[in-house]
Design a protein around this nucleic acid. Structure first.
Lengths: 129, 129
DNA sequence: CCGTATCCTATCAGATACTG
DNA sequence: CAGTATCTGATAGGATACGG
């Protein structure tokens, strides 16, 4: 594993990727930020409409929901479909790209859940010193 | 996969996990933030000293490096060893927990790299509309 | 060498009010 | 229903200077 990590980093540096201009990091930032994670998990269950998401995520604001959805849509991770009914309805769903991301996200969440006891213990040790 | 996602979310809600008080998210935030990702990738290659990391990550500031290292140390993801030589030296290395995280991180990076062409295309479509 | 302390700015994110 | 606009407080993050 260390070798993989080492090779990847070297590859990037060979290509002149400074952390600042790395396109991968931009995407990672979008998907791993506060709300996008929750949004993607919700949409992993089923496609949803705007206000449906608003209700499912109790303490998100409209502003943040809109912004997060736009970012994810722009990156092609989710799809936005407008039905010109009255009143209008808009549904959001994962794209193929988004579906491909979900397993990684769940694996990460699993890792964090599994490691929680150890992490909590580490924190207590750190804080009491 | 959708089922896994659905069950997980329901489990959390049953346990009264609001997004705001979710401990998993705190950890995820720490490891997925701007600098920690790069730090973990570097330490995935080999243990490193403070200034060594500073040189490896060209545009990080001391302040941010210190802060990021402390967060990761507090969560027990990396280990900090002080050798009381003169001048003093401090080395950072991944803990078992950190080693366990690395594969997930690399998988995510891989996903992002593989998907980049599609993402770039999606962005252009989005921006030209 | 390995940090801390301070200051200062830019961006993030919540609350509120308004629109097609 | 599905947003946009605006204002404001909180937070992140860079630059610089200093200390053990």
């Amino acid at each position: 594993m260390a070798q993989v990590s080492a090779r990847k980093l070297q590859d990037w540096k060979d290509q002149g990727f400074e952390p600042g201009n790395c396109p991968v990091r931009q995407v990672l930032d979008h998907v791993s930020a506060k709300w996008p994670v929750l949004i993607l998990l919700e949409l992993g269950r089923k496609p949803m409409r705007f206000n449906e998401l608003l209700r499912a995520l109790p303490d998100i604001s409209k502003r943040m929901l809109t912004q997060s959805l736009r970012n994810l849509e722009r990156d092609g991770i989710l799809r936005r479909e407008v039905f010109d009914t009255k009143p209008p309805s808009v549904t959001y769903s994962l794209s193929a790209l988004g579906e491909g991301f979900l397993p990684h996200l769940l694996a990460l969440v699993d890792w964090a859940e599994t490691g929680m006891p150890e992490i909590v213990a580490a924190r207590q040790r750190f804080d009491t010193v």
